[in-house]
Design a protein around this nucleic acid. Sequence first.
DNA 1: CCTTTGACTACGC
DNA 2: CGCGTAGCCAAAG
Length: 109
Amino acid sequence: MKESDNFFEKVYKVARKIPFGRVTSYGAIGAYLGAAKSARMVGWAMNKAHNLDDVPAHRVVNKKGLLTGKHHFDGTNLMQQLLENEGIVVIENQIQDLEKVFWNPSEEL
DNA sequence: CCTTTGACTACGC
DNA sequence: CGCGTAGCCAAAG
């Protein structure tokens, strides 16, 4: 393993630590990584995460709790189903009670 | 090396 | 309240 991959590596690391039934935002992860303004980079890392099985990308949503990345899963409601499976209420790609299920790595990790 | 992109976020109209 | 634009940053082509 190479620590040089730290950016993506950190993203994967944090993403794997997301507790069951919780979600976080790209910006929150980015902030934890020290790149708060690079929320997109987190998304890019997630894109590579497709190669990895350990990254629960479905637990990572945008700041509004919107399942923006569901199009990258399989094009259907798979992401929503996964979240609902964890006890998260999702309606129209929008996570309900976001504040209850939101997991902030900067505070809880 | 320079240009494009991309699963974001904030602000403005 | 929905859409557009701008700012942001790093990787891929």
